[in-house]
Design a protein around this nucleic acid. Structure first.
Lengths: 362, 362
DNA sequence: ACACCTGACGTAAACGTTTTCATTCTACGG
DNA sequence: CCGTAGAATGAAAACGTTTACGTCAGGTGT
């Protein structure tokens, strides 16, 4: 048995454990991965050595052997705000349960990690800065992760493409993509918008109902707007063009919307508005009050996303609740599934939205 | 030259590139890490092969050789809410700039990854569930990360200890720890609380000023409370015991506080309160209005943390701004530094707080 | 007594890199 | 023409695992 002097400062290796327990490294490995294959005696000896030496298997060596990657990438457009925060939380919890780790990233890390600036031969190239080797700009570490959950935006559409090229398990959030081994998670925006619109229609006639959306070309915005229109039509009201407006997902846009809308609003009171998200709704809510409109007596407002803002504000804000935490958790579950069975049939999970009625539309 | 048929589906290895460029793997490696050592011709050939084959060096193999870990752990008590969200964002941005990746985790993953349930010999152990080998509950993946930033709470105090034991670079957030190679980042809570208290003292006499804190045993709470007391004393007012109260970091506690306080408040109007964080402040703000108190005419409120809530609520909330994003970024910077020079002197970064005055105390 | 299985364990190959050392080749000063 | 320096490259060891395979002992069935 080739004993080796354990290095002083570094963490113990499997060899150190093997030596300490007077077995081979294979046996140590078996204790860790297939305990049934070793005798009770040996198990105990090795186990004792492991705890005594504080042995931790080297993740890199392990990852090298069996592509078993316990790390999942989570790429979001941004990390800021309740919305993503909640998504992340769901993902983290589920990852924890399933024994995975979360590598988070926001926005454009998509430039490939390789290669470094080419082209300085032995002849000194004048245009070349030192470029120390350790410093090369590293994009998303594919190869480190066993799968990626992506929420699509411009910058990381490239990331998605690359993941697909690499045959990496991929889950797309909030967008339906038809691709051989790509699963999707959708939030049922249409249903949520329908729910909210129908709720408003209980107290407001169709012609006095508006939709104040986010950016016009945003996918979610469109879905919600379409559902709004459909719900109005179902009640026999073909919406006028001015009943649908688009701006940005911001408080400021909400404020601007109400100030413009209030003056234009010839239809009389009360009127109602379905906002594209809670921030817009909040802007409307506050600016409406500043304009002397009472909520909900004069204006009935429903937001979208049910962020914590909605419940904290006064009057509290009705909102369409999208189960963000479930979305995060489901993303991890789907990834785990696809890692386990790479060729499983594609899944499109559609999570239902629900309407939380609060003071702003009661 | 031992050509090997490249496997069909797997990603290209360094050997594939070497074959394609008719060089040895050593040369390919040099192209990647020490371009100066190869001739111009070879460089170009290899470079072409790399791009053509979409070669990415295997992170695990690399990590196995040179402990260069480009992944940093970020352990927070929770991921929920503006607070952590903002911290994360700062960290992610800086990590991106510095070429690191972020492995996030919240709460108690601290149980060691090893070993799996011991003690089922060949004799079937009745108490033993199947315990499939792939399923073992994995704690935080030390060994995968090159450093850890920890924000202390009960569950991951263990994580901190373990990191220190492993001689892993560690940065502690929001707590000063004296330990050989551990850096700390502190938010200057005392300064922030002082600022806020002095601001309130400009319009409110000391005896009508209160502190509505979070949990009594919370470190931040204590620091803020102490600074509050000190500021009062500096103005010659020794605070009565009832001017300092402790509860929880929640809206509900704020609401409860004001309802109890308003009845007890014999001192007359207006009075002022420094809240332990924005949520408490918000609870106070809303419940005060419900009680018929005007803000800021009757009650002046200052919150803490300056989360987005503060600016969105009406009346908007004065708050002590703590530079969360900077905290996150600085954590990454410190980690990077310690990875580069493990024996550098310990650093304690103290980030200044500032007071944002809004309607609630104007 | 013999063949054969089985449980327990060790040997060694593989995973994909980086890096040290050795080798080849060219050029050049003597 | 020889010796040698230096540039360019290849061969091979090392990193810490997992796992296929081999070995060996002690049964068990004939």
């Amino acid at each position: 048995m080739a004993k080796r002097a354990p290095r002083a400062n570094a963490s113990a290796s499997i060899q150190d454990v093997a030596d300490a327990a007077s077995v081979s490294i294979a046996t140590v490995s078996r204790v860790l991965n297939n305990p049934d294959l070793v005798s009770r005696d040996t198990f105990d000896r090795v186990h004792e050595a492991i705890t005594r030496l504080r042995y931790r298997p080297n993740v890199y060596a392990r990852g090298l052997i069996n592509g078993t990657r316990r790390v999942l990438g989570f790429a979001l457009p941004d990390l800021h705000g309740e919305f993503y925060s909640e998504l992340l939380r769901g993902a983290d919890g589920e990852a924890n349960r399933l024994g995975f780790h979360l590598l988070v990233t926001s926005e454009g890390r998509s430039q490939p990690a390789l290669p470094p600036a080419p082209g300085q031969g032995p002849g000194t190239d004048p245009t070349n800065t030192p470029t120390r080797p350790g410093e090369r700009t590293s994009g998303f570490e594919f190869g480190l992760v066993g799968g990626v959950a992506v929420m699509i935006t411009e910058p990381n559409a490239a990331l998605l493409q690359e993941s697909i090229d690499l045959a990496l398990p991929v889950v797309v959030i909030d967008l339906e993509i038809k691709h051989p081994r790509v699963d999707c998670i959708l939030i049922d925006n249409a249903q949520g918008a329908t729910l909210a619109t129908e709720h408003l229609l209980q107290t407001i006639p169709p012609e006095r109902l508006s939709f104040a959306g986010g950016p016009r070309d945003n996918f979610d915005t469109k879905t919600r707007a379409d559902a709004f229109v459909a719900a109005l039509r179902a009640r026999g009201g073909e919406p006028r063009p001015d009943q649908l407006t688009f701006g940005a997902y911001s408080v400021e846009w909400g404020q601007r919307w109400i100030s413009e809308h209030a003056s234009r609003q010839a239809g009389g009171l009360p009127f109602g508005v379905l906002a594209g998200n809670d921030e817009i709704a909040l802007g409307i809510l506050q600016a409406a009050q500043d304009l002397g409109l009472r909520v909900p007596q004069d204006v009935r407002i429903v937001g979208f996303d049910d962020t914590r803002l909605a419940s904290l504000v006064r009057p509290s804000l009705s909102s369409v609740r999208v189960p963000l935490r479930d979305v995060g958790a489901e993303a991890i579950r789907l990834l785990a599934r696809r890692i386990a069975e790479p060729d499983a049939a594609e899944v499109v999970t559609r999570l239902p939205a629900s309407l939380i009625v609060r003071e702003s539309s009661r």
